[in-house]
Design a protein around this nucleic acid. Structure first.
Lengths: 141, 141
DNA sequence: CTATACTTGCAACAATGTTGCATAAATAAT
DNA sequence: ATTATTTATGCAACATTGTTGCAAGTATAG
């Protein structure tokens, strides 16, 4: 398991408490988290504004990417190593929203962009969002 | 061109001014519209709350579906005839967000869901969102 | 250890979205 | 046509999300 500090340094951003806490939360949960969920994982004394600014910084530096799920909630997920250029999300994976537990996962499978867009349109990037039941909710052990 | 009133009656919802205006806006623009865009198309005197409630009704009755685009804005698009069961969006089309003009289109192409999800997950529905340049912005005539 | 560049917290603001309740309007029934 | 009933609307109030400017504090480079 990687340390938050290492990850921050690798991306050349300053190491602060809130940054370590947010990265730690993402590493621990192993799912994408909404602002609200992140808020509940970190020390309460941090200001709302700082949380938003930190998340924006992370997205801009390619540490995280955002996910717009079917439920309309924006979530944040760590980019896998080297998968995110600053400002450009790696789209070669599928986002999965579990309708039961509400958790969002980045599925490790690479999506084959095997769909056509009409002539005249130019595709830059795409996102595939799947809703359904996750492993845990489908087969509770 | 279909009349808003016809569409509303077919779905067995009451015909009111705001409902006709909202459907008319969607029919006229031929793109998906955000709350804000819808607001700008209809008579100002309608209350915000009524707009939201109307949109919810439309989604629940299968008249429209929502689109969560890469820019985080929720947009509303008319369902093509018979394509939406109440509460269940037909996912066999691609949503396209133009990065230049900001408009969102429902592309008529049926998506080939040619991607795999890991064993243990159960897929209910999916959404493919593409960003890029639309016809107009790519080849301004 | 100091200088400085970057972060943080606070106040204020704007937009989005929801709920309860009284009133008004659309449809169904007479 | 008129009334009864069901549904929709507008208003007030509230909660959440997200942004900006600025002063004070902190991490890092030198």
């Amino acid at each position: 398991m990687k340390k938050p500090e290492t990850l921050l340094k690798r991306h050349h951003v300053r190491v602060t408490n809130i940054r370590k806490e947010i990265v730690a939360a993402l590493l621990e949960k192993e799912t994408a988290l909404s602002y609200r969920e992140i808020r509940d994982c970190i020390c309460e004394s941090h200001d709302r504004v700082t949380v938003y600014r930190t998340l924006n910084t992370f997205v801009n530096e390619g540490i995280m990417h955002t996910i717009s799920s079917a439920d309309g909630v924006v979530r944040y997920a760590l980019c896998s190593d080297g998968s995110c250029e600053p400002h450009h999300h790696d789209d070669r994976h599928i986002h999965f929203l579990c309708k039961k537990c509400g958790r969002t996962f980045c599925l490790p499978f690479r999506a084959q962009p095997d769909f056509e867009i009409p002539t005249g349109y130019k595709m830059d990037s795409f996102e595939i969002s799947v809703s359904g039941l996750c492993e845990n909710c489908l087969n509770p052990s």
